[in-house]
Amino acid sequence: MNNSLLEIKDLRAGIEGKEILKGVDLSIGRGQVHAIMGPNGAGKSTLSAVLTGRPDYKVTEGSIEYDGRNLLEMTPEERSWAGIFLSFQYPVEIPGVSITNFMKTAINARRKAQGLPEMKPAEFLKLLKEKMAFVQMKGEFAKREVNVGFSGGEKKRNEIFQMAMLEPTLGILDETDSGLDVDALKIVADGVNSLRSPERSFIIITHYQKLLEYIRPDVVHVLKEGRIVRTGGPELADRIWQEGFDGIDG
């Protein structure tokens, strides 16, 4: 087994004819946590959109290899089945669909794609309860409509809950820390930390270094104007905190 999980080479991509990523190279090893930092408009969210196959984003050049497969040929659902999970910056409300129904549908869709039978209801319920406790969600949470009427903190905890349910191989957190108070930030960080394993990698996209105090990354990248201009260890995040992005150049 190759030790690299994700290989991005010279990736150029954008939306509505506007190029946002202008040649990104990134290699992520199994079990590693990479942080991607950068100012607004650097292309951080475009990167997460391209990795998860958002239909309105177009890749114009370059390649992405995930677990030995050509990621760009896979649909969003195929990427999920292959173990990619995105914690959305703006989680979407789905009126009329309960968390339970949503997760049951998601888990059984993946099992079907893998040729497995549906999960038994008792087994599913046990998993649901276990993962709810993981993000400190109470009983009635499972019956609520997905993200409808959730506070900002609840939405982000719901993302981490879903991540724990789906047990991805590559978890991508897109600005999961934005708008969170310290308590919610700690719940999110504890959740991610307890999911860390030698087989599971993470990309933490963030604006601030705060989350990285709780989730220590192995590698920090600075994304600016569509390119990775600097790569370093966790100390790079601390330096950005002190000097700002302006002090960091390629």
Binding site: T52, G53, E77, S80, F85, F88, I94, A109, L166
Partner: peptide, 14 residues
């Protein structure tokens, strides 16, 4: 479309 993509990203086919 946002709801649709959100669900697909969780592995639910279109």
């Amino acid at each position: 479309e946002n709801e649709l993509f959100y669900m697909r990203s969780r592995g639910i086919p279109e």
